[in-house]
Write a protein that binds this DNA or RNA. Sequence first.
DNA 1: AATGAATGAGGTTTCATTCAT
DNA 2: TATGAATGAAACCTCATTCAT
Lengths: 199, 199, 199, 199
Amino acid sequence: MADKRQEIIKAAAPLLLEKGYMHTSLSDILAAADIGKGQFYHYFPSKYALGLAVVEHRFTVFTEQLLNNVLGAPKTGQARFDAMLDWVIAAHQKCSPNQGCFFGNLALEMSGQDEGFRLLLMRVFETWAERIDDALQDISNTADAPPDERKQLARTVVAMIEGGILATKSYQDINMLKTSIAAIRRLIGTYKSNCPPTE
Amino acid sequence: MADKRQEIIKAAAPLLLEKGYMHTSLSDILAAADIGKGQFYHYFPSKYALGLAVVEHRFTVFTEQLLNNVLGAPKTGQARFDAMLDWVIAAHQKCSPNQGCFFGNLALEMSGQDEGFRLLLMRVFETWAERIDDALQDISNTADAPPDERKQLARTVVAMIEGGILATKSYQDINMLKTSIAAIRRLIGTYKSNCPPTE
Amino acid sequence: MADKRQEIIKAAAPLLLEKGYMHTSLSDILAAADIGKGQFYHYFPSKYALGLAVVEHRFTVFTEQLLNNVLGAPKTGQARFDAMLDWVIAAHQKCSPNQGCFFGNLALEMSGQDEGFRLLLMRVFETWAERIDDALQDISNTADAPPDERKQLARTVVAMIEGGILATKSYQDINMLKTSIAAIRRLIGTYKSNCPPTE
Amino acid sequence: MADKRQEIIKAAAPLLLEKGYMHTSLSDILAAADIGKGQFYHYFPSKYALGLAVVEHRFTVFTEQLLNNVLGAPKTGQARFDAMLDWVIAAHQKCSPNQGCFFGNLALEMSGQDEGFRLLLMRVFETWAERIDDALQDISNTADAPPDERKQLARTVVAMIEGGILATKSYQDINMLKTSIAAIRRLIGTYKSNCPPTE
DNA sequence: AATGAATGAGGTTTCATTCAT
DNA sequence: TATGAATGAAACCTCATTCAT
């Protein structure tokens, strides 16, 4: 049944997060999923296909948890934006301590190697940025910015988060991410009034 | 002579930038350096040792070019800071178009796998942040911030740059980096006005 | 099936006897077993593991053929002891002419390099000595010796056999072993009566 | 000068004793002798030639120390014989604890691989046996044995010593050698009188 | 007499994938 | 569906030896 396929994906996901695509061998995956080689190749044509499937699965989960539930909540844009930042910190504090961002890790590893991965991961970031853009639209003054500019701001927010996560992984210190997120709040604040942010 | 060692390092560096550590095979390196296996192991005890040596070499070059020449120039802090941001954009526009940051790529790939790489790369980022901190000290208002806070701001600047480079690699679009850097300027600008942040 | 594993072991055994552990390359083994590299590593985690497995296999065969069938036969101790000595000569005359003792060869090669081999091979010799001790118990006058002393005598018999086999390999002359075994008979004879052996 | 050649030989000898011929790499030897590759190949045409030279060197030392000084002393045959056995024990107790006999180790490792080593080592054993034979000639009753038989007895003594050393290396216990040597004494005793040894 | 850089065959091992059952 | 045996290319590394200086 298709459940087995999902099981394999779910077993592989933490390995890809922890070790990356290349560092993760098929044997690692088979051991984690507790299946044989034959079964794997029944569900996936290759390790590569599994890799993409895992990204898509994590994208689905990410969409549900953050993009829909948090960023899509029936609240003000500011509230949704703030909740997102809180969610990011929480996720990296408990779910994957200092292991980096699943998407960011793979984006850096694979974007230069393979267009399939690159396009998929770019779509993840772009979708995320779109939902942030939705929230920004609702925040005073940023709402007045030209749409393109606001979209770029949203992308920059994603980039800043990824930068903070990278630093957290490198320093092995979650405070790097927290500081980056504080900087994001301050940056967004500059768009809100004529006077500087006074948080 | 030791020149050959340097040659190998220089031949390997672009491969590590483009493909990462794991994706780069010893054969790739041998072909790029046009040497035989035995010769390689005459100069390096292992591929791993070469990896660290390449990072150190790039760190040396980076220190000379950016940290000393640009960030260490006899100018105002603001001028040095601005020149650094310009340098980063220029470097990623011509030297390694959309291939990511040598240090950031390896940091994400290796920090979770190996402490040797992690510590070395963390030192790169930390050194960079220190020189940024020096510049920030010279910028009005940020100079008044508590030292620890300013140091964290410097680290955040590094993280934001890395985030922008990551996005550039993912989107294959240098504008991602340019936008991130514009955001950095705006962020730093918030520390310069008469309406100071009073958090 | 596990038969293949046994096949590999049986193909490797004569190589290890003839050339020793280090002189035998994996390629030699693959050629002898007529398998590919991958298949080998499907059955064994390493060459080292195969080495130990071959020793254990030969130990099993040795136990069946000599320790159980010959030294464990329902005969007098003297008859069992004599049959053992005959068996040893016969084995080295036809099975492995002048190639040395499988266990002795590896013991000398590996005991100083690796504790796994050493302990395993020591156990082979010790088990052998125990069965000899059983036979000696049944031989008049040696039966009266203190148990420890008799046990040491049994170990010495093993050592003398190994010494004779070593000499046979060095001289390429089975008579070296035959003479050593004659000496063993004479030595044991000194424990049997009040009058010395007069051959 | 030729001194350097001797230095290399002396540096290599303990390595060959400890690790055997194959386990010892040229690099090991160069490091131990503190010389470069060029210098090595100036003095020796190959690792193989060095191996033979080391055996010959040890044979020379062995001849001086044991064959000439001890077995060639102006004493009775019995005294020389006893002194030899004492010397063997002493040598393996302090000089090379439980590392085996230099000649026996190499004989087992190389005799099946290479005739050069085999013949040289056989000559070592045979020369030793000749000197033992000289001593035995002087011991009552063994002196009456047919020359060939006595010569074989001498060879057996060598084989028993080697067997005891092998057991010592395998058990990591010098008592194995001591017991074997006690057995030699007992065996020789049987040739000396009409009454059996009653120790 | 000496250096150590260069060579390249061969060492053990890992890997993603295929295939017979 | 599922198994795991089989494949072979390629991974990293070691080695004895040669060669230019």
